[in-house]
Amino acid sequence: MSPPPPAPVREPAWSLSRSAIGLWVAQGVLGTVVYGLAVTAFLLFVPADAGWLVTVVRWAGPVLVVVYGVVAIGVRPRLRYRVHRWEITAEAVYTLTGWLDRTWTLVPVSRIQTVDVTRGVVQQVFGLASVAVLTASSQGTVRIPHLEAEVARRVADDLARRAELVRDEAT
């Protein structure tokens, strides 16, 4: 049995698809609209003399919706795109996720049991797919989200082939 691959000493080489920015912007717009409608419904259906909470919501509610919208639409998608990275080497799958709390994940190819490609409804609109690499570890699944659909298919095929070769070599 070969020794485990060394820990990564650099950021993984690849970014997610640029279309992921559009997907995250669309999610931010949807979230902002939902929060805006919730604040509007509160202000329309709760009497103005119902207490101090209504006064606070009348002033702070619209401001918080605008701040949320600026962050969810203008900041978060571009920041997520800059920090989410992935790479596949001969020995392992590396992912780097998180924009506040950074998480390195390294999965040796020899530990891969299953590779799945999923395409949610919104991902399909943007031509994206996610690759899920499943192992027997307690950490479970490692995901590479929002790749171009064709890239995701090729990555999954390549990983499945590599994992099968390693499995064949071990027996």
Rank of each mutant, 00 (worst) to 15 (best):
residue 157 D to K: 00
residue 84 H to D: 15
residue 33 V to C: 13
residue 9 V to S: 05
residue 53 L to C: 03
residue 102 R to G: 15
residue 36 G to V: 14
residue 23 L to V: 15
residue 146 H to R: 11
residue 162 R to L: 09
residue 89 T to G: 00
residue 104 W to G: 06
residue 167 R to K: 11
residue 12 P to H: 04
residue 88 I to V: 10
residue 1 M to L: 13
residue 50 A to E: 02
residue 120 G to S: 10
residue 52 W to G: 15
residue 95 T to I: 04
residue 100 L to Y: 01
residue 10 R to F: 01
residue 77 P to C: 08
residue 77 P to T: 02
residue 162 R to H: 12
residue 38 A to V: 14
residue 64 L to G: 10
residue 100 L to T: 08
residue 80 R to H: 02
residue 6 P to S: 15
residue 40 T to C: 08
residue 8 P to Y: 13
residue 111 R to E: 12
residue 90 A to T: 00
residue 63 V to Y: 05
residue 53 L to A: 04
residue 87 E to Q: 13
residue 121 V to R: 14
residue 91 E to S: 11
residue 29 V to P: 13
residue 120 G to A: 10
residue 90 A to D: 01
residue 34 V to W: 11
residue 142 V to F: 06
residue 121 V to F: 09
residue 11 E to P: 14
residue 90 A to G: 00
residue 25 V to F: 09
residue 39 V to Y: 11
residue 71 V to Q: 04
residue 36 G to N: 13
residue 51 G to Q: 03
residue 79 L to G: 05
residue 82 R to T: 02
residue 141 T to H: 05
residue 19 S to A: 13
residue 132 A to C: 06
residue 38 A to W: 14
residue 4 P to Y: 05
residue 32 T to P: 09
residue 85 R to T: 01
residue 112 I to L: 00
residue 154 R to V: 08
residue 77 P to S: 09
residue 69 G to S: 07
residue 102 R to S: 14
residue 149 A to R: 13
residue 81 Y to W: 13
residue 26 A to T: 15
residue 6 P to I: 14
residue 146 H to K: 10
residue 168 D to N: 14
residue 43 L to H: 11
residue 130 S to W: 00
residue 89 T to H: 01
residue 17 S to C: 04
residue 23 L to W: 12
residue 53 L to I: 01
residue 5 P to K: 09
residue 29 V to G: 05
residue 131 V to L: 02
residue 42 F to S: 01
residue 150 E to Q: 01
residue 63 V to H: 07
residue 90 A to P: 02
residue 147 L to W: 07
residue 110 S to E: 11
residue 99 W to C: 01
residue 157 D to F: 02
residue 92 A to K: 10
residue 15 S to D: 15
residue 101 D to P: 10
residue 20 A to C: 09
residue 60 A to V: 12
residue 93 V to Q: 03
residue 28 G to R: 13
residue 13 A to G: 10
residue 52 W to Q: 14
residue 76 R to T: 13
residue 132 A to F: 00
residue 128 L to S: 13
residue 4 P to W: 06
residue 104 W to T: 01
residue 141 T to L: 00
residue 127 G to Y: 03
residue 100 L to H: 08
residue 59 W to V: 08
residue 110 S to M: 03
residue 161 R to L: 09
